[in-house]
Amino acid sequence: MHDLDLLHISLADQCLYGFSAGQLKLRLPVSTALKGAGEQQGSFCTPRGLHRVEQKIGADLPCGAVLKGRKWTGEVWTPQLHEECPGRDWILTRILWLAGCEPALNQGGEVDSQQRYIYLHGTPDCEPMGVPRSHGCVRLRNTDILQLYPRVPLHCAVQIAEAACPQWAAAELN
Rank of each mutant, 00 (worst) to 15 (best):
H2R: 01
L4A: 03
D5S: 07
L6F: 11
L6G: 03
S10H: 03
A12M: 09
A12Y: 05
D13W: 00
L16D: 06
L16W: 12
G18Q: 10
S20I: 01
A21S: 13
G22L: 06
Q23E: 14
K25H: 09
K25S: 04
L26G: 08
R27I: 13
L28N: 00
L28G: 04
V30E: 10
T32D: 05
T32R: 10
T32K: 10
A33Q: 10
A33Y: 05
A33M: 02
L34N: 10
G38S: 15
Q40D: 13
T46L: 03
R48K: 04
L50E: 04
L50K: 09
H51K: 08
Q55D: 12
K56C: 09
P62V: 10
C63S: 11
G64D: 11
L67I: 06
K68R: 15
K68I: 05
R70F: 12
T73R: 02
V76F: 12
V76T: 14
H82L: 13
E84M: 08
E84H: 04
I91E: 13
L92G: 03
T93S: 08
T93G: 06
R94Q: 03
I95D: 15
I95N: 07
W97H: 12
G100T: 04
E102T: 05
N106M: 08
Q107E: 15
Q107T: 01
Q107K: 15
V111C: 14
D112E: 03
R116N: 13
R116C: 10
Y119S: 14
Y119I: 09
G122R: 01
G122K: 02
E127S: 02
P128N: 06
M129H: 06
S134D: 03
V138C: 09
Q147G: 00
R151K: 04
V152T: 02
A161T: 14
C165L: 07
Q167L: 13
W168T: 09
W168A: 11
W168K: 01
W168C: 09
A171V: 13
